[in-house]
Design a protein around this nucleic acid. Structure first.
Lengths: 207, 207
DNA sequence: GTCTATATTTCGATAGAC
DNA sequence: GTCTATCGAAATATAGAC
C-alpha cells in the first residue's frame, strides 16, 4: 500500500490492543486484524512483538511526560504551572483513559524499558534529564517559601503529589467506575476534579 | 504433605510471581518452582491459572482496601483518619512495594474480576458497599466545613485524593527509582512522604 | 496428595509465492 | 510490500502411577 502509512497503521492498532491487554496479553493476530493487515506484515516492520511493544511504549510514555516536563520547566509562575498541568492531564487522559493503566503496567512489568527510554527519547540519564525541571521548581519554591506564601517542599515531592492527583484516578478507573455507579459517575468525578484539583493542590502547599 | 498448608504455599508463591509478571506474563512452571511443588499440583488445587490468579487478586485487593475503608468509616476524627490511612498505606506498601503496580494492572486488564470481588468479598454492589464510608465522611466534612475549618469536598473526591497521594508513588516506583538516582533515592522519597503527606492533604482541605 | 509423562492448544515467527 | 501456509516452541492442562 504505502510509504510509512502501513507502519503507522500497525503502530496505531498496536497502541489500541496493547493498551487494553498489555504486552504479555496482546496477540499479534489481534493487532493485525485491528490494523487490517496480515500477521506477517507486523514481523516485516517490527522484528518481534516485543520490539513493537517497546516502540509503542516509548511513544506513549513520551507523550505522557513531555508536555508536563516542558510546563514545569518553563518560566511560568508556579500557580500557573499547576493549573496548566492539571488541565493538560485531565484533557489528555479523558480522551484516552486507558493510558495510565497501560503505561503504569508496562513500567511495572518491564522496568528495563525505562533505561532505553531515557537513553533514546531523552539522550541522558534520567536524573540528568530531570535536573533542569527540578532546578526551575527549586528556585520558585524557595522564593515563594521565603516570602511565606507556601511551606518548603522538595521539587520531587511537588511533582509526585501533582502527578499522583492527576493520574491515579484514571489508573483506577475500572474500580472507580463501579464505586461511582457507572461510566457517568466516573465522568462526573473527573469533571469535578477539573474544577477543584489545582486549588486543592495549591492550598496544600500553603503555610 | 498437608492440610491446607500446600494450598497456602501455592497462593504465596503465586502472589510473588503474579505481582512481578501479571496474569498473562506469569508461568505456572515458575509458580510451581517458587512454591516447591509440581505444576500438576497447581491444577489440582486451582483448576486453571486464571482461577488461581483471580484468587490471588481478590486477596490482595481486599488487603489493600479493607483497612482503609474500615478506618475511614470509623468514628475517629477526620484528621486522625487521614494520619492513620497515610501510615497504614506507607507501612504496608513499603513492605510490598510491587503491590500497587500489580493490583492496578490487574484492575486494568481484568476489570470483570472486580464484579466477582464485590459480590464475594463484600457481598453487595460496590456503590452499596461504599455507602456507609461515604456517609461517615459526609457527616464529618459537613460539620468541619460548616464551622469554617475546611472547604466542602465530596467524600469520593476526598478518598480519591488521599489514596492517590499514598499509592501512586509506589505504582510508579520503577520510574521514580531512576529519576531519584536508585533505590536509595526512592526510599528517601517515601520516607519524606511519611512525614509530610498528611499535612499536605489536610492543608489542601483548608479554606 | 503428589509426582512423571504426555497430550493439546495457542501463538510468535519464518518461508516463499506474488 | 503484502499475502498464504506452515513450522516450532512454549505453555496450559490432563492421564495415570505411586
Amino acid at each position: 500500500m504505502d510509504d510509512g502509512a502501513t507502519r503507522e497503521r500497525i503502530l496505531d492498532a498496536a497502541r489500541q490492543v496493547l493498551a487494553d491487554r498489555g504486552t504479555a496479553g496482546a496477540r499479534t493476530q489481534e493487532i493485525a486484524d485491528t490494523a487490517g493487515v496480515n500477521k506477517a506484515l507486523i514481523h516485516y516492520y517490527f522484528r518481534t512483538k516485543e520490539a513493537l511493544a517497546e516502540a509503542v511504549f516509548q511513544r506513549e510514555l513520551a507523550a505522557l511526560l513531555q508536555p508536563v516536563l516542558r510546563t514545569l520547566g518553563s518560566p511560568l509562575p508556579l500557580e500557573e504551572k499547576v493549573r496548566t498541568v492539571v488541565g493538560l492531564y485531565l484533557d489528555k487522559l479523558s480522551a484516552f483513559p486507558q493510558l495510565p493503566g497501560y503505561v503504569l503496567a508496562e513500567i511495572h512489568f518491564h522496568p528495563e524499558r525505562l533505561d532505553d527510554f531515557f537513553a533514546a527519547a531523552v539522550g541522558s540519564l534520567p536524573e540528568v534529564a530531570m535536573a533542569p525541571v527540578f532546578e526551575a521548581l527549586r528556585r520558585q519554591i524557595d522564593q515563594a517559601s521565603a516570602s511565606g506564601e507556601i511551606r518548603p517542599i522538595s521539587p520531587p515531592q511537588f511533582m509526585v503529589n501533582l502527578i499522583s492527583l492527576c493520574v491515579f484516578s484514571f489508573a483506577a478507573r475500572p474500580l472507580l467506575t463501579r464505586v461511582t455507579g457507572g461510566e457517568t459517575g466516573f465522568d462526573a468525578l473527573i469533571s469535578e476534579r477539573r474544577d477543584t484539583l489545582a486549588d486543592f493542590f495549591l492550598m496544600g502547599l500553603r503555610t
